[in-house]
């Protein structure tokens, strides 16, 4: 199984790049052949502070460490002390101190692709929150996970927290999915605003992947940032941080 993966991101309009609170890992994979690949995207909640740090720790934890659904508590236990260490070293004014005490929140979508013994390939994904995976095969979105329709996005998802008491219901809120992989499939990992646009476009009978699969190729008409700007201006895309990982299978 050969894979090429590329990532694209743009911060919310009106925010600086330093205020981007999504995360993705790894940055990309250049046409490579391996037994197993792992990818993750995460979306730190606007309402909490230090959530960008938390999102970045979560995607690394999934890719480099515990990644099975039953290991979710271990993943959190690995990432949490790192967040506390990074945040705890700072001198904070009263409001930032209270926000730090309240903890940070983030979604997490992790994807594993592996070759099985029979020479076939399969994928497994875990998700908490509203970052989404879409699998496209033969010009059709055959899997949408964990959210399946653009009308199902709301602004209050259950998210992974740095404060363990807020994670007590993580098992009930952890979604798991599996499927097979075939050559020429494409997997799109997206944070919520872009995923919502993707699904709404698909529901209208247009193929959103046509615009995404040419990014960074000779066929590209506009860059990711130009495309996102245009969609925001046309009110087709909610103004939020946007992240895309496009994984092409050969």
């Amino acid at each position: 199984m050969e894979i090429n993966a590329e990532s694209f991101w743009l911060q919310k309009a009106g925010c600086s790049a330093a205020e981007y609170e999504d995360a993705f890992y790894p940055e990309g994979v250049t046409r490579s052949s391996q037994q197993t690949f792992r990818f993750a995207v995460a979306d730190g909640a606007t309402d909490s502070s230090f959530s960008g740090i938390w999102a970045r720790l979560l995607v690394k934890a999934f890719v480099d460490g515990p990644h099975e659904p039953e290991e979710i508590e271990q993943l959190l236990a690995d990432a949490r002390p790192r967040w506390e260490q990074q945040v705890g070293q700072r001198q904070l004014p009263w409001y930032a101190e209270q926000k730090a005490q309240a903890g940070a929140f983030s979604s997490l979508l992790g994807l594993m692709i592996r070759e099985t013994d029979a020479g076939r390939s399969e994928w497994q994904a875990i998700a908490v929150g509203d970052s989404c995976l879409v699998q496209v095969r033969n010009e059709k979105a055959i899997v949408k996970f964990p959210i399946e329709h653009s009308s199902h996005f709301d602004s209050m998802p259950f998210l992974l927290a740095t404060t363990s008491s807020f994670n007590s219901k993580v098992r009930e809120n952890l979604a798991v999915a599996r499927g097979d992989i075939q050559p020429d499939d494409a997997m799109y990992l997206m944070t919520d605003a872009l995923a919502c646009w993707f699904m709404a476009t698909d529901e209208r009978g247009h193929a959103p992947w046509l615009a995404l699969r040419d990014l960074n190729t000779g066929d590209q008409r506009e860059s990711f940032a130009e495309m996102i700007d245009r969609l925001r201006t046309q009110h087709e895309l909610r103004n939020d941080d946007c992240t895309l990982m496009r994984i092409d299978i050969f």
């Binding site: 909640a45 606007t46 309402d47 602004s155 209050m156 998802p157 259950f158 927290a161 807020f166």
Partner: peptide
């Protein structure tokens, strides 16, 4: 007042 994503578990 909606100013962004707010976790339901907070």
């Amino acid at each position: 007042l909606n100013i962004g994503t707010r976790p339901s578990n907070l």
